[in-house]
Structures are given as structure tokens and as C-alpha cells.
């Protein structure tokens, strides 16, 4: 089976300096992979490269077997790559509804996006006219997630969904991610700690200093990580 995403010896960085040094990764259809690692490991850079925001300086990114090195991020987005970026992935000066309108560039109608988003996150429905910048952190993350949930992407990239959120909300968000996975979506989740993704990930990959160190079952990797941090 052709993997949905395949990275081969991928290198990328900023201003001519590589921060990821040749990583290999395959995600097949319906698989949920957790990419873990300490601050500055290069996780965000990896996602930026996959989503087309950074061109690789070496190696290849393939989607469904097609080499997409150097493709523009908006083209990849329309082709089904959905990145929910680190921090708040919303337009702060646009209203909730206007944020949802922006999701229609993927080709899904606004009616269907609104219907599904408000059903998944009723709190957004109540605040559709409010500017996104004034939403609470959790609500903003729900809004950011609703782009992923309503536009039927083929590959979902999530960057530190849990950052700065209460455990309750994180649990709720990951429950939604779990539902997506069940529908057969391929998902790459970036988190610093393994606990958050134990329930959803099929596989965990640990990245340190721009290289992949460990690959394994999430529970096992989580145990190793805990030891490493504590022993550290």
C-alpha cells in the first residue's frame, strides 16, 4: 500500500542551516503517529516542511507516492494536507464565522462546514459573530481544529494541540482526533510529552536534535522517555 506520507532522508532548516538532519518516516492510511521530542528538536520544522512552508534542503517529501518537494503550502492544503499550527491557528481579527469561511478554500461549502463545526463544538456556534482573538484559548483551539474536522483532509498535522490548555479540554480535543482516526484519516501529532497522545497514537517517534532516535509503541516510548527525562 502506498503510504499517505513518506519522508526520505529529509533535511531542512532556516537560512542555509539545517535543523533536521535526514529523517525517514512513513505514515499509511488511517495511521496515527505521534512525533515527540524536547524543545528545539525540530518537530515544528518537520511539519512546516511537510506542509510546504519550508522547502527541503535535501531528501524528499512524498504524498500518496508523489514527490511534492517545493510545492506551495496553499496547493498542498487544497490537495488535502491540513496543518493546525503551534499556538493559536486562528485569524484573531476575523469572526468565528469568517474563520470558517477561510476553510472553504479547500472546496467544501460554507454551509456544510458551519453545520459540522457547530455540531462538534457547540460553543463555537454560540460565538459565531465574536472575533476569534477574544475567544478563550480552548475555544480558539477548537476553532483551529474545526478546520481539520470539517474539510476532510487526507493528512492531518497537529502541532502541540495541548499547549497551554486545561487537561479537560485537551482530552476533549483528542477525543475528536480519535474519531477522525477511526474514519481512516492519517494523522501526525506533535507533542512534547507522550501522555497526551497515549490514547490515540498507533506509533510514537522520538526526535532529538533533528534526528529520529526511537520508534515504537506509544506506551513503551513513553516509559523510555519518562526515564530519560527523570534520569536526565
Amino acid at each position: 500500500m502506498t503510504p499517505v506520507l513518506e519522508l526520505r532522508d529529509l533535511r531542512a532548516g532556516y537560512g542555509g542551516i539545517d535543523v533536521i538532519h535526514g529523517i525517514d518516516l512513513r505514515i499509511v492510511s488511517g495511521e496515527v503517529v505521534a512525533l515527540l521530542g524536547p524543545n528545539g528538536a525540530g518537530k515544528t520544522t518537520t511539519l512546516a516542511t511537510i506542509s510546504g512552508q519550508i522547502s527541503p534542503s535535501g531528501g524528499t517529501v512524498s504524498l500518496m507516492g508523489h514527490n511534492v518537494n517545493g510545492a506551495r503550502p496553499d496547493r498542498l492544503a487544497r490537495a488535502g494536507v491540513c496543518l493546525v499550527p503551534e499556538g493559536r491557528g486562528v485569524f484573531p481579527n476575523l469572526t468565528v464565522r469568517e474563520n470558517l469561511i477561510m476553510s472553504t478554500y479547500t472546496g467544501v461549502s460554507i454551509a456544510s462546514i458551519e453545520e459540522r463545526a457547530y455540531e462538534l463544538f457547540p460553543r463555537l456556534g454560540e460565538r459565531r459573530g465574536q472575533t476569534a482573538g477574544t475567544l478563550s484559548g480552548g475555544e480558539q483551539q477548537m476553532l483551529a481544529m474545526s478546520r481539520a474536522m470539517t474539510t476532510d483532509p487526507a493528512l492531518l498535522l497537529l502541532d502541540e494541540l495541548s499547549m497551554g490548555l486545561a487537561p479537560m479540554i485537551v482530552a476533549e480535543l483528542y477525543e475528536r482526533v480519535g474519531e477522525l482516526a477511526q474514519k481512516g484519516l492519517s494523522i501526525l501529532i506533535v507533542e512534547q510529552f507522550a501522555q497526551a497522545v497515549l490514547g490515540v497514537a498507533d506509533r510514537a517517534v522520538v526526535m532529538v536534535n533533528g534526528e529520529i532516535r526511537t520508534v515504537g509503541a506509544p506506551a513503551e516510548v513513553s516509559r523510555q522517555l519518562a526515564e530519560a527525562y527523570l534520569g536526565g
Binding site: P85, M102, R147
Partner: peptide
């Protein structure tokens, strides 16, 4: 809306397609 979105965040705009 997209014109205003670009002013808010260029990179996020491109991520929406």
C-alpha cells in the same frame, strides 16, 4: 474575508488553501 485574513496571518492563510 481572505484579504483581511492575509493581514492577520499570511502563513495561516496559505495553510487554509
Amino acid at each position: 474575508v481572505a484579504m483581511r485574513a492575509v493581514v492577520d496571518s499570511r502563513s495561516l492563510t496559505s495553510l487554509t488553501g
